[in-house]
Design a protein around this nucleic acid. Structure first.
Length: 315
DNA sequence: ACATCTTACTTCAATAGCGC
DNA sequence: GCGCTATTGAAGTAAGATGT
């Protein structure tokens, strides 16, 4: 049986016709290619995929013909990926990651879950208030599952307006025509430094006064990273990012160790425990980052999503 | 329902290139 | 020369499509 891969791929949109005519490769081919790429050997990749080397060779040849490009440099002692092969490998892994996500998303339904809520939130909400609030909600509503994704506030508003997410949690944006905004939590970004840092002891500073300092930041791609980078960019400068980490708690630890200074929500400092930190107010107006819940004005949300909104507002 | 054809895919055996 | 690896062509198999 030929199982066509119909997962959305970047080249799909630009060549739908070609795709339908020539794209006759399947998940076995993708899995085989990943195995070959990881083994750097067609023979060993084939073995890992329970195929004869000749079969693997044939499949890869057909795959390359289907894509119209060479994916492997054949060597006497194995294979090497071409540039196209590296790109294909990345996409193939993404396909399997998305399949895993699909199974993960569907699993709750097989286990009797009746409702599913798509919730998008910014970094701040995900790292501070949502863990507790969602935990309490899910304990009360065991038949509901929540798909939580992190995005920038701008993307969340657009996503909710489009209907990609039922509920969003954002900061900033007091007015946005297509969505309804409800107050969730009040919070403010603050600067943190190690107690021995020269800036420690200041009560309030403008962001422009510290922008040249080495910063400890969340990883690139996180909503707050994008937001802070844009704030620096609006001042016509670049942020000096010394270290990037994966959580606000890690930011606090790094700052406490003297690696640099940090810009984090006040709540995140409280949640990080008892790190020795000096907290400095940011004088800029944008530092006030009150969190708001947003829902579409056009598309009615499910009863499960409504229940979650009510729960968040009641907290 | 059954026979036949077609297609996709596989294995096997042979071959070639390369490094030690 | 030997061992490892990739490729090619021939032949076999299984499943679906088609015809009677």
């Amino acid at each position: 049986m030929l199982l066509l891969v119909l997962v959305e791929l970047p080249f799909y949109h630009s060549s739908v016709r070609l795709f339908r005519i020539h794209m006759k490769y399947n998940l076995t081919d993708l899995r085989l290619f990943i195995a070959i790429a990881e083994c750097r050997s067609l023979t060993h990749g084939a073995e890992r995929s329970f195929l004869a080397p000749s079969s693997a060779s044939h499949r890869i040849k057909m795959l390359e013909a289907s894509l119209g490009t060479v994916l492997l440099h054949r060597r006497s002692r194995g294979v090497e990926l071409t540039r196209a092969g590296e790109i294909f490998l990345r996409h193939a892994r993404q396909v399997f990651a998305r399949l895993e996500q699909m199974h993960s998303d569907l699993a709750p339904f097989a286990e009797g879950v009746q409702g599913h809520v798509r919730l998008w939130a910014n970094t701040h909400a995900i790292h501070s208030y949502l863990p507790q609030d969602l935990s309490a909600f899910l304990a009360q509503q065991p038949q509901v599952s929540v798909n939580l994704e992190e995005h920038t506030s701008a993307d969340i508003l657009a996503g909710v307006a489009r209907g990609d997410a039922e509920i969003g949690i954002i900061a900033g944006y007091d007015d946005y025509q297509e969505v309804e905004l409800l107050p969730y939590r009040a919070d403010r970004l603050v600067l943190i430094t190690a107690p021995a840092h020269p800036l420690a002891g200041s009560t309030s500073l403008a962001f422009a006064q510290v922008v040249s300092q080495p910063f400890v930041m969340l990883h690139a791609g996180s909503a707050i990273h994008t937001f802070t980078m844009n704030a620096a960019s609006n001042m016509g400068t670049h942020l000096n990012v010394r270290v990037q980490v994966n959580s606000f708690e890690a930011v606090c630890r790094m700052v406490a160790a003297g690696v640099g200074i940090g810009l984090v929500p006040r709540e995140a400092v409280r949640l990080s425990g008892h790190q020795p930190l000096s907290i400095i107010e940011v004088a800029d107006a944008w530092a006030q980052r009150d969190l708001k819940i947003c829902t579409s004005r056009k598309t009615p949300i499910s009863s499960f999503a409504r229940a979650l909104v009510d729960h968040l507002l009641a907290e």
